[in-house]
């Protein structure tokens, strides 16, 4: 290490690995991870969400798990809570759909209507 710039670069890399430790703020994505969710493939969805967030270096988004959300036949289900705690529920998720949610909803603030519960 020879300069402040070297340090800043190292810090940026290192920060990505630790920034989930801290206070809660910003948007929150909750993945249903009960037996039904896991069986329907919630883990690849969860990992895809985390990966996409890291890749795009998005700050202030927290990904957590929860138990059974209740509509087991629509699993895997994820819920996105905005800053004002408004909830959007996405159903029958896949890893690819998860990436789209990150891009459209988290980054651009556009709800992906086609993935929500259809009447």
């Amino acid at each position: 290490m020879k300069s402040l710039a070297d340090l800043a670069k190292l810090r940026e890399e290192a920060l990505k690995k630790v920034n989930i430790r801290g206070e809660r703020k910003g948007k929150r994505i909750v993945v249903g991870m009960a037996t039904c969710g896991i069986a329907a493939g919630a883990r690849p969805v969860l990992n895809a969400l985390v990966e996409e967030i890291q890749k795009r270096n998005i700050q202030d988004v927290e990904v957590t798990q929860t138990g059974c959300i209740g509509v087991c036949k629509l699993e895997p289900i994820i819920e996105v809570y905005d800053e004002n705690n408004e909830k959007t529920t996405y159903v029958e998720m896949t890893a690819e759909k998860a990436q789209k949610v990150i891009v459209d909803h988290i980054v651009n603030g556009q709800i992906v209507a086609e993935f929500t519960i259809q009447e």
């Binding site: 340090l7 810090r11 920060l15 690995k17 630790v18």
Partner: peptide, 15 residues
Amino acid sequence: IEEYIAFDGYQALGK
């Protein structure tokens, strides 16, 4: 040491 650097470690010395 990387975790210390992630939380602003050695920034003060550099400054």
